[in-house]
Design a protein around this nucleic acid. Structure first.
Length: 666
DNA sequence: CTTTTCACAGTCGCGCGGATGGGA
DNA sequence: TCCCATCCGCGCGACTGTGAAAAG
């Protein structure tokens, strides 16, 4: 496939390897040129000033998941037509058009089969990355910029890194990268929205590169991302910069242990639309402003570093800040400049560099890009969808003060508590919405019982407003399959020994990987308070079950905090099912129907509003902000917009189990 | 009317300094 | 007595969403 055919007007010096990759795939480009933003009027001067990094940032990348979705479906016509059609008809996120929604957002479904195939046919697929991870055509889905001149033939952004020792290069390189490379415009656009399977795994082969190895990237906190994604994730942008939540966190495998890499995140426009929240849902509102200038790249503070380093620990970008202030970026902090009410897609880039931090000029193929569709978000200056607000409050430890039921969460006797008291583990409770986690027995039982239980709540909590749901139940169901298939990839990750965290920001304490301290990951680093960040993920289930490392230690009376622990028992559907039933029976929480979980039935007054016109609904959605959680939810005026059936809950439990299994030691 | 900005309160982590205890 | 390590409390700053006001 010729890039020009899918990127009209584009004249980009892309590595040949990417073309080869594209041509090797039978998937078609789902990004019709007619829907792409024309970047020809972009500031060329600034673009020319930027380094060749832009080249691979924008043009040399492959959108793994997009192509995944297409190749998986096996229906190229459907894959290519669905998204454009949706856009033409003003893609309403989570609109009432369930059919459309299902088609467009059957992300997990796509991922499911892919993983299933991978796990069942590893011998053939592994050897053929393109078949296993058919990313061809992805290149075409990345808007590479209409102006080829912006992408010089050299990849030398790393060249600005001081040729000093590595440690200094890391720090200096970070600042100089930001200052020296004004990624003035979003160097690329990603179309269409929600193209991919939403997998937690992304990979791209590097054909024809002997030295470069094919890396695999795993989205660590994917359950959390998916949860937000269902409601259309929103990210606050402020002048001083706002951290992302959920933040980006990855595990990487497949790198050359001794080679050095720069790892950074780029945020690009996900679609050509301007969005607005109207009638309780996101609708397009004109064209996106593609002239937005400002930095779009955040280099991981520890870049550059060895492949072994990157693979040893989880790589998180918790300190990444988003801003709408074009001039906010300084040399001290990296901030990504975005525009409000535009949809963006973060992408992870891994670029091999020489030891002194200079990008390896000898091989342009040593750049890899990974995209996870569930990371898409709409930048806002104020939250629009209260479901998102509630999710943020429930999950972000910094928003703990807004959890109305916080005080009542631990009023129960010690023996009845699900989670440790704040004194046990200052953070273990932060994201555990009160009575959701009831009656936690000992370690083993906790582990077994908690997952289903928590994921039942997860499912119920995710009761998505009818107008906002992004993923159909089918897709969720399929997600379970994908999760289970993720087991196939356990090997590489485990071998990598990913155990700790690179980013020592607060997020590091909540990393998904660090949530797996109990013999799951070898040689874990000291990364306390991990699980609490993911209350609804499989890891969070563990967190809820074990509450925290401290509580666990208390119970297990093991010596070292990170001493080897017995691996949790393997899970089967039967086990899950039975355990789930047990949880259902023994749980002290509200019934699964009605007001279970944080999303409660709306009080009559709000229901009346809800039953009114869309503006009324919008107002209700925008104004309500009541912490759900726990026992206080009965009086909560929260609107419950959608209920999940128990069946769906079970499916989600399975999905989560599969997700967790990714980290489970055999 | 929509969007953005700002001050605010609440929570938490980190760093600093003092107190304490053990060993030389 | 001095030195060092550890523990503890306090204060500061970072971070969050809220809600009103300002801006467009």
């Amino acid at each position: 496939m010729q890039l020009e055919s899918i990127l009209p007007g584009a004249s980009v010096n892309l590595p040949k390897t990417f073309y080869n990759l594209s041509s090797s795939s039978e998937s078609t480009n789902n990004s019709p040129g007619s829907t792409q933003i024309d970047f020809q009027d972009m500031d060329r001067t600034e673009a020319e000033q930027s380094s060749g990094a832009k080249k691979f940032l924008s043009g040399g990348s492959a959108l793994i998941d997009e192509a995944d979705s297409e190749s998986f479906t096996g229906n190229k016509a459907a894959a290519s037509a669905a998204a454009p059609d949706a856009r033409k008809s003003s893609p309403v996120i989570g609109g009432d058009d369930e059919l459309s929604s299902a088609r467009r957002y059957s992300i997990d479904e796509l991922g499911t089969d892919r993983y299933f195939i991978s796990s069942t046919q590893p011998s053939s697929d592994v050897t053929n990355p393109c078949s296993l991870f058919p990313y061809g055509g992805q290149t075409g889905s990345v808007y590479s910029g209409a102006n080829g001149s912006r992408y010089s033939s050299s990849l030398h952004y790393g060249s600005v890194l001081p040729p000093a020792g590595f440690s200094s290069a890391v720090c200096a390189g970070r600042s100089q990268f930001g200052s020296g490379y004004q990624f003035g415009q979003g160097p690329g656009c990603l179309y269409p929205s929600y193209p991919g399977p939403g997998s937690g795994l992304s990979s791209m082969p590097i054909p024809g590169s002997g030295a470069a190895t094919r890396a695999q990237v795993y989205l660590c906190n994917r359950p959390l991302w998916l949860k937000f994604h269902r409601h259309q994730t929103e990210m606050i942008i402020t002048k001083q910069g706002r951290r992302m939540f959920p933040f980006l966190s990855f595990n990487i495998t497949g790198l050359n242990l001794t080679a050095h890499y720069n790892v950074f995140v780029e945020v690009i426009l996900a679609d050509p639309n301007h969005w607005r929240f109207q009638g309780g849902k996101w609708v397009t509102c004109g064209k996106a402003d593609n002239n937005m200038q400002g930095n779009k790249v955040y280099v991981h503070p520890e870049s550059p570093n060895t492949g072994a380093h990157w693979m040893r620990q989880e790589i998180s970008f918790g300190k990444l800040k988003l801003t709408n202030n074009k001039g906010a970026n300084n040399n001290n902090t990296q901030m990504i400049v975005l525009q409000s009410l535009h949809k963006y897609q973060p992408r992870l880039h891994i670029v091999e560099v020489t030891e002194d931090g200079v990008e390896d000029m000898s091989s342009e193929a040593k750049t890899q890009t990974f995209t996870f569709p569930e990371n898409q978000f709409i930048a806002v200056t104020a939250y629009q969808n209260t479901d998102i607000t509630q999710l943020k409050i429930d999950h972000n430890p910094f928003a703990k003060g807004f959890r109305d039921n916080y005080d009542s969460m631990y009023t129960a006797p010690e023996s009845d508590r699900l989670t440790p008291s704040p004194t046990d583990s200052p953070r273990s409770h932060q994201i555990v919405p009160g009575a959701r986690y009831a009656m936690q027995p000992f370690f083993q039982d906790q582990f077994v019982n908690n997952l289903p239980q928590n994921h039942r709540f997860y499912a119920s909590e995710r009761a998505v407003p009818q107008t906002n749901g992004l993923l159909s139940p089918q897709s969720e169901d399929s997600a379970g399959g994908s999760a289970s298939a993720q087991r196939w990839f356990v090997g590489p990750v485990q071998q990598s020994g990913a155990s700790g965290k690179l980013d020592l920001s607060y997020d590091s304490e909540y990393s998904a990987s660090s949530l797996l301290p109990y013999g799951i990951k070898p040689l874990p680093l000291q990364s306390p308070h991990a699980l609490s960040y993911y209350p609804d993920s499989a890891f969070a289930s563990m967190a809820a079950g074990w509450s925290s490392r401290s509580s666990y230690q208390r119970k297990m009376t093991t010596g070292l905090p990170w001493s080897p622990r017995p691996s949790p028992p393997a899970y089967t559907d039967d086990l899950l099912s039975s355990k789930d039933k047990l949880q259902d029976e023994s749980s002290t929480v509200a019934p699964t129907t009605g007001s279970t979980g944080p999303w409660m039935e709306a009080p009559p007054v709000l229901k009346a509003v809800d039953s009114g016109d869309t503006s009324g609904y919008s107002m209700a959605c925008k104004r309500r902000r009541v912490s759900p959680g726990g026992s206080s939810t009965d009086a909560s005026p929260t609107i419950k917009c959608e209920d999940l059936s128990s069946e769906e809950y079970n499916k989600e439990s399975h999905k989560a189990m599969g997700y967790y299994a990714f980290y489970t030691s055999p």
